[in-house]
Amino acid sequence: MKTNYKPIDVLRPVILIILGLLMLFPFAWMIATSFKQGRDVFSLSIIPENPTFANYLNIFSNSNFPFWFLNSLIVGLAVTASVLFFDSLVGFTLSKYSFRGKKIIFILILSTMMIPTEMLVIPWYIMSNELHWVDTYWGVMFPGLMSGFGTFLMRQFFQTVPEDLLDAGRIDGLNEFYLFSRIAIPLVKPALSALAIFSFIGNWNAFMWPLIVSNKVTMYTLPVGLSFFNGEFQSQWEMVMTGASIATIPVFFIFILFQRQIIQGIALTGVKG
C-alpha cells in the first residue's frame, strides 16, 4: 500500500530515539558510576577511566546480600501474584455486576490510596507484633496483598470487555468464575501485564515497611539492606549506584517478561464494543 511510506514513518523513530537517549542519560551515569572507584567517582566522564568491578565484588562479598536479594524476590513475586488475582477479581466484580453497596465499596477501596503509608506503619507494627509476624515474609507482605490501585486499574479495563460475550457464556451454562478467569481475563491481558510490572516494582523498591517489620539482618529486603551504604551525613555513592544497578536487573527482567503481552494487544474478533 502507498500509505506505508510517509515521511512521518521515518521521522517518528528518529525523534523517539533522540528523546530516548536523552532519557537514558542519568541512567547511564548511574551505571557508569558503579564501575568507578576512589576519586574517579566524582569525575564527570560517562565512560569510566579505570573501569573496575570492585564495587560489585564488594557487594557480592557481603554475606547477607543473597538473603536480601532472595527476600525481595520472594516478597515481590508472591505479592504480585496475590495482587494479580485479587485485584482483577474485585475489579471484575465492581465492573460487571450490579449489587447493593457496589459504589460505596468502590469508593472505599479507592480511598485506601489516599492515606500515606507512613501513617499506617505503627498500627501495622503493633498488629504484627501481637500476631508474631515480625521477621517473617508474611509480615513484610501482608499490607500489600491487595491494592486500591490495581483494583481500580482492572475495573477500568474490564469495562471495555463487551457484556454480550459474558452473556453468551452464561447461556452456555458457564459459571461466573469461569467467565472471569477464562473469558474476561484474556481480554485484559495488557492491563494485567502492566499491573504485574507495577506491582513487582512497587514491592521490590518498598523501603519503609520492610524496615520497620524486620529486625534480623537476614530478613531485610534489598532496598533496606542497600541503605546500609548511607552513613552519617555522607554516603558511599559508588556503592549506592552499584546497589541500584543490581536492583534494576530483576525488575528489567520482569518488565521484558510481561511487556510482550502489552505489545501483542488483543485480537478482538467479531465483537462490538
Binding site: 523517539l16 530515539i17 541500584a244 534494576t248 528489567f252 518488565f255 511487556q259
Partner: peptide
C-alpha cells in the same frame, strides 16, 4: 522504545536523585 522510556521508572530513586 518502551524499554528505553521505562528505564527511569524502574531505577532506584535514591540513585537517580543523586545523579
Amino acid at each position: 522504545f518502551k524499554a528505553l522510556y521505562f528505564l527511569p521508572y524502574i531505577t532506584s530513586m535514591v540513585a537517580i536523585a543523586w545523579v
